[in-house]
Design a binder for these strands. Structure first.
Length: 477
RNA sequence: GGCGGCAUAGCCAAGUGGUUAAGGCGACGGUCUGCAAAACCGUUAUGCGGCAGUUCGAAUCUGCCUGCCGCCUCCA
């Protein structure tokens, strides 16, 4: 049984999908005006992990994540970069895919873009106008907050409390300071589309409503995003969508905490951002994911390079275990008896892992189970009489399953894809075998100076040698 | 000002009423090794920001205090 913390109710609730066996998820994607930073990445990795776990549990997941490619920030940035908003959005959309792929984030089923859903947006606004929830004024269209009684139910505040912060910007035609724009009249040089209210473009919040309703329908299961979207973005989405459809918009609202840098929020306006591509140049994706999933998604996560260094070592521990297990399976004779105790601990680890993820996607706890598995496996493969092949393969299945959920390492054919010793059929591999053979001869002669020189030399070019009683093991780092 | 969150070992971080407070990184000692590496074993929080209180029993609940942060305006 999965329990999730729902921002809407402020409590953990049992998760029951609207349709049995099928889960519909919408996550607010990037506004494509810049490369994504680690804070953005946290959201995408978190919801990727949620999706992976739901699939692990046997649900068919429909996962939608939008690109906001029509927006004030894009227009502004395009002007600065001396390009068009469209070209700018294209550039950063491509960059998003590179970064997200680099983080081993699975692809969404659909990535709807605002610029391709203008008709749906206009349709939704027309419904709101017809229903008396919105009004046109001077080429703009505004949502009338006071007409929607439930306004504030997500962020937990009443319209009267919000009045103090609300303002009418110069040039706006709001009747009430709380109202927000659904449609903005075009200004010279800005992207624009024809509409019943004249040429213009959508406001910020309406696109997510229009696209979520188009691809998922009303009453879908999960809507996610960063905690800073609770207000006003998600509050407004609920108001628009529920006013227009008369139905529940999303059933469970999930919000992840921020990444901070020296306890301060990482944000573009503060200027303390670390871009995903910069981080991935220095650290493997496995370490970045380990870092991001090592803290519960709703807690703040402080970033510092040394935390990533620690995660690099943790990821190495995982990959070393994978290598040892692969080796042990290859060496084990088929058949054989025993290993019952090991099998028992495997099933108890799986149960613990599921319990952790069932508890509001507690990836930190799940990770502890992953490391417990590593210790069990390492001990077992080094035992005087290791478990039989069949049992080792069960351990590998569990290792792969944990990896599949957490996405630490990329997968190939259901197994983690971890760089390890090549077979010796490629040139580098054969060369390495030769060097290792020469070193072994030196070792037999007890010529430790030569042996150590070779080992150190290889280490400098990224090849680590490990002498074991059964021969030499090498791996790339 | 309004609303919300956080404070657990050297560092990161689970744990939200009940056996010896997960896990990772680091450090130290040991086993193995020619030496390493990897791996394993052991040690590293009689205590969970402080003070009261509730309870047979609290890191976990209540109150107060202290410190930090976020949202209320673009932001994942």
């Amino acid at each position: 049984m999965i329990e999730v913390y729902n921002t809407l109710t402020g409590s953990k609730e049992r998760f029951v999908p609207a349709e049995p066996g099928r889960v519909r998820v919408y996550v607010c994607g990037p506004t494509t005006y810049n490369y994504i930073h680690l804070g953005n990445a946290r959201t995408f990795v978190i919801f990727d992990t949620v999706r992976r776990y739901l699939e692990y549990c046997g649900f068919k997941v429909v996962f939608i994540q939008n690109f906001t490619d029509v927006d004030d920030k894009i227009i502004k940035r395009a002007a600065e970069e001396n390009t068009t908003p469209h070209a700018l959005a294209q550039k950063y959309t491509r960059a998003y895919y590179e970064d997200a792929d680099g983080l081993n984030v699975l692809r969404a089923d659909v990535y709807p873009r605002v610029s391709e859903h203008i008709a749906e947006i206009i349709g939704l606004i027309e419904t709101l106008v017809a229903g008396g929830f919105a009004y046109a004024a001077g080429g703009d269209v505004y949502f009338s907050v006071r007409r929607y009684p439930d306004y504030g139910k997500l962020s937990g505040r009443s319209p009267d409390e919000m009045l103090s912060g609300a303002r009418v910007e110069p040039g706006e035609n709001k009747r009430d300071p709380l109202d927000f724009a659904l449609w903005k009249a075009a200004k010279p040089g800005e992207p624009k589309w024809p509409s019943p209210w004249g040429e213009g473009r959508p406001g910020w919040h309406i696109e997510c409503s229009a696209m979520a309703l188009k691809y998922l329908g009303a009453d879908f299961d999960f809507h996610g995003g960063g905690a800073d979207l609770i207000f006003p973005h998600h509050e407004n989405e609920i108001a628009q969508s529920e006013a227009a459809t008369g139905k529940t918009f999303a059933r469970y609202w999930l919000h992840n905490g921020f990444i901070t840098v020296r306890q301060e929020k990482m944000s573009k306006s503060i200027g303390n951002v670390f871009l995903v591509r910069e981080v991935l140049e220095r650290y493997p994706a496995s370490a970045v994911r380990l870092f991001l999933l090592g803290t519960h998604y709703r807690s703040p996560l402080d970033y510092a390079p040394e935390y990533l260094e620690a995660a690099v070592r943790g990821a190495e521990r995982l990959s070393n275990c994978f290598g040892l297990l692969t080796e042990a399976i290859a060496k084990a004779a088929s058949g054989g008896e025993g290993g019952d105790i090991f099998t028992d601990s495997l099933s108890s680890l799986e149960a613990d892992f599921r319990a952790a993820m069932d508890d509001d996607f507690n990836s930190a706890r799940a990770l502890a189970c992953y490391f417990d598995l590593v210790r069990e496996v390492n001990t077992a493969v080094h035992a005087v009489s290791p478990p039989p092949k069949k049992v080792l393969e069960q351990a590998m299945e569990l290792f792969s399953a944990f990896n599949r959920v957490l996405g630490i390492f990329p997968e190939k054919e259901g197994k983690p894809l971890i760089m390890k010793a090549a077979g010796g059929d490629d040139f580098t591999g054969r060369l390495l075998e030769l060097i290792i053979a020469v070193r072994q001869e030196a070792r037999i002669r007890k010529d430790w100076a030569v042996a150590d020189q070779i080992r150190e030399g290889l280490k400098e070019i990224g090849i680590v040698l490990e002498d074991t009683v059964e021969g030499v093991r090498w791996k790339k780092v």
